[in-house]
Design a protein around this nucleic acid. Structure first.
Lengths: 197, 197, 197, 197
DNA sequence: AATGAATGAGGCTTCATTCAT
DNA sequence: GATGAATGAAGCCTCATTCAT
């Protein structure tokens, strides 16, 4: 494993542990097992390093969403959404401290935005991907025409997102059982709706 | 308006504008129109000031939720939830930069947590409040027994929360029309469910 | 004496002693008897401090040149030029390490240039001042019409300048006797010319 | 052209362009088209490299002065001095940023001094050379006995030196016409003197 | 209570130099 | 001889906090 990756991993760990504000170059270097100077052989600046790490977040949800493209018509809609929700909760939970911290540095947020806009990426794409999937299922007749795919996506991912946010906020671990229970009751409610007998 | 409030308002403005990381005592003092020294006549430390501000966030949702207690049985469930959702989107949108920034300072987050835990408050209480309301409505027979009140609450507030987060992330303004449209389609979907014909 | 002046004096001393390249903020602060941070309460940056010092150089020659304006027609031309030359040698000698060092930082030189250009000042103005004086003396008939005032000024100040440069280069002190001898033989030669019997 | 020369040339260019303070080994290596490590295969240190370059400055004046030894009695005194002056202005102009920068590093200046003292060289030798030449011409009767050869030399080279210094200081180019005009009027004044009718 | 100059710890970054390949 | 990643010392500067006025 090359030093660049070691540094990136160290930085991610330090930010997660001590927070972005206390993630000093000294601490990162110590964690990576190299000198502070080495950081600058691989990253232009500390900001550059942080943005690099940001780009690496939410990889699992994104991958789950890629898989989703080919799932329309297969398995059940519910089981497909379940996989996405599970990946969402877990990834959002892991990445929340990294991602949310950026609001403390609007300048960096702007740079990050330019980056993912240019690459046609970004966290909001997740909701769009679920929306697209549901549209496909509507075309296939496996989902009612009356459903608004975007809202269904927003509610599914939104509840996962806030759940992950609050767990972090409350410093609570994410156990598999709780995660499962959460996902199941959310999907139940999503499918059933609250307006029926 | 006393100096203490002026300082708090200035700090909130500066954090929202420049971000927590760049919210220096010098900048806050300049914005408040007083000296840096004065900050310390009213707040023990900069952290103290930030925590003071944090406690002042999400006031509108919280108030909307207080009102909700007395709304069970009145108006329609949907219109009651709509008010909450509207307050949620708007407050979450306003407060997101302030609230999320705390992830960059886990030490402060821990203090903040102790504070709202001691006062039996906190952002997660919002979801509980909606849950309680829905339970009441179930008792009153205005909501199906099959509905999981907690999940309904999580989906409603979760989607509002993520929506507000993403708008901030994308640096997009929150217009009244968009907010309305969002809230309506979410409530439509919440009531209808996606599993029915 | 206020701290700002103490810092400026300390910086000048340190630059003269250790050279611009080794004039660290730490050393300057120590010499000024204050903390490094204090430097930044009085100067925007180290560059700003250096430029401030540069602007204070060559004060004596400049003053001698101001006096020269009112000397046309008084005393003798030679004695008037002698005073200027003496001030020139002495000031150039003192300031040479400070002034010449700026060539090691073209960016700073450019800033400095903008500064004195805007203020219509600069070291080259010295030669112009002597030229003006000689023109006046020509008008008064105390100096031959055949003389080129600018060249006379350039040769007088140029020889003083290079003399001061070389003394610094050779790390030689400037004694009063040597200075006198130098000025006298230069003026002798300037008045006599080398093309006559 | 061997790498050592390429490195030296690159370093000279970089110093002239960016200034001694910003002439980093990285920049020099890039300009020379080699690695930073290579610098140390040919020079003991960066200081060593800089001193090497310094020794290569003012080559043209020095050569002009060597030629001068054999010119006594030939051509005219004026034309001989003119050649020297021309070479002086041009060389001083080219070398000024390199030479003057050394005042920012007194330690290096001391080393450089030891070097040229040991080799019986140095910039002040130029003035001595002109002085010697003029002495010879006095012996040959082509120059008045009343002239002080050293002062004549100092005035000639001093005015050229300061002229070159100020052009650099003012960031002005040295055109051939201006250089000619300058040299001619200086020689006119030198020969005529300013004390005659 | 209000001030703001002074502080000093500590952060980010640069850079000459080394050394294993 | 050539390389360039790694080093670590040291530089400049910021900033929360204090304290004498």
């Amino acid at each position: 494993m090359d030093l660049k990756s070691k540094i990136a991993d160290a930085a991610e760990l330090v930010i997660r542990t001590h927070g972005l504000a206390k993630a000093t170059t000294k601490e990162i270097a110590k964690t990576a097992g190299c000198s502070e100077g080495s950081l600058y052989n691989h990253f232009k600046s500390k900001d550059d390093l942080y943005l690099h790490i940001l780009r690496g977040q939410l990889k699992n949800v994104m991958q789950a969403l890629m898989s989703l493209r080919e799932m329309s018509g297969k398995e059940t809609v519910r089981s497909n959404l379940e996989k996405v929700a599970r990946a969402g909760v877990s990834d959002y939970y892991q990445s929340m401290p990294l991602i949310s911290s950026i609001f403390s540095e609007p300048g960096l947020l702007a740079q990050h935005r330019e980056g993912f806009t240019a690459r046609n990426e970004g966290p909001h794409r997740a909701n769009e991907a679920v929306e697209s999937y549901l549209l496909e299922e509507q075309k296939l007749g496996r989902l009612s025409e009356h459903v608004n795919p975007r809202s269904a996506a927003d509610m599914l991912l939104g509840s996962c997102f806030q759940y992950a946010f609050q767990l972090n906020f409350l410093a609570r671990p994410l156990s598999d059982e709780e995660q499962n229970a959460f996902v199941h009751r959310v999907l139940d409610t999503l499918f059933l709706g609250i307006g029926n007998e």
